[in-house]
């Protein structure tokens, strides 16, 4: 800003607020607008969840009736169980995969930049594309199973996509494929920030690579691990497009997830009040993850400021 002023010496200096107008317009206006949207729609959804609204929003008060209806429904119960399974499996496996990739990449191998881009690339792909591509790959008649059959191993069976019990794992696989590169990037940054002298000291102390990682490097990564887990959990809770494209909740309702339930209630069964209640429940699950994280960050920062 001050550059612009000094570059035109002949002109009188503009008032501060005029010079900073572009700044205000580009930062604050969108920020306030989106905050207003977020808050007002959240409040509106919360209000709707207590009304008897169906096809259109109506005023009225039904107390927690929408909530009891949602939580009693088999659809929601399956979705919630699936979320627990999918959320924990996806978060753990994707963090583990990301960590392993990061450790492998950290060996100062050739072509690191290319590999890093390859692993990060899925992040740039939309979930719908990921879901669709994996639905082809996992389709027994089109994808991997067919390929192996064509290669001659005809007894090979890989039909998780249409298996009620295993279908949820196809979502886990696709979600890991999409996001382990992100975990890898964070872990790699963490590995690279370890003081090289510490690794030299461990070498002189006689620690092999396994002991060096286990005792010295990995323990220093746990703040990054918390961040990775929270970000991935938040993604897991709000997963919608990936499932929609990959299994659409099926077979049957075997891969139902909360976001799909909300969509189903609101836009397919026109039960606005119940859909809103399900959405509010999702928000509560999200808060159950984010609030402890925020508290942890706050304590960390306080402790950092004191040390």
């Amino acid at each position: 800003m001050s550059n612009a002023a000094t570059m035109r010496p002949g002109r009188p200096a503009l008032p501060e607020w005029v010079r900073r107008l572009p700044e205000y317009l580009t930062i604050w206006v969108p920020l306030l607008l989106s905050a207003a949207h977020l808050v007002s729609f959240s409040l509106w959804t919360i209000w709707i969840s207590f009304t008897p609204s169906t096809l259109v929003p109506v005023a009225g008060w039904v107390g927690l009736r929408n909530y009891t209806a949602v939580t009693a429904s088999r659809n929601w119960q399956i979705a919630f169980d699936n979320l627990l399974l999918f959320g924990s499996a996806f978060v753990l496996l994707s963090a583990a995969t990301g960590l392993i990739l990061a450790i492998l990449l950290d060996q100062r191998i050739r072509g690191e930049n290319v590999l890093r881009s390859i692993f990060l690339y899925p992040l740039a792909v939309s979930f719908v594309v990921t879901g669709t591509v994996w639905s082809w790959l996992l389709n027994p008649g089109l994808g991997i199973q067919k390929l192996v059959h064509d290669l001659g191993w005809t007894s090979f069976k890989f039909d998780w996509l249409i298996d009620r019990d295993m279908a949820i794992w196809t979502i886990v696989i696709a979600a890991i494929w999409q996001s382990c590169g992100f975990a890898m990037a964070l872990f790699l940054a963490g590995l690279r920030s370890v003081d090289p002298d510490i690794i030299k000291a461990a070498q002189i102390d006689g620690a092999g690579p396994v002991r060096t990682y286990r005792r010295i490097i990995l323990p220093s990564l746990w703040p990054i691990t918390v961040t990775v887990v929270v970000i991935q959990l938040q993604f897991a809770i709000s997963t919608f497009d990936l499932v929609r494209a990959l299994t659409n909740g099926g077979p049957g309702i075997a891969t139902q997830l909360p976001a799909l339930v909300v969509y189903d209630l609101m836009f397919q069964r026109s039960l606005l009040g119940r859909g809103a209640a399900a959405a509010v429940l999702m928000l509560l699950i999200l808060l159950a993850v984010l609030l402890p994280y925020a508290a942890w960050r706050y304590i960390q920062r306080r402790r950092g400021a004191h040390a």
Binding site: I216, P219, S220
Partner: peptide
């Protein structure tokens, strides 16, 4: 000979203490 077998000890400028121990 590997560093650990050279019968040496080293003190670094950054101290290089293991932070988690």
């Amino acid at each position: 000979v590997a560093p650990k077998d050279r019968d040496i000890a080293m003190v670094f400028q950054s101290y290089a203490l293991y932070p988690s121990m």
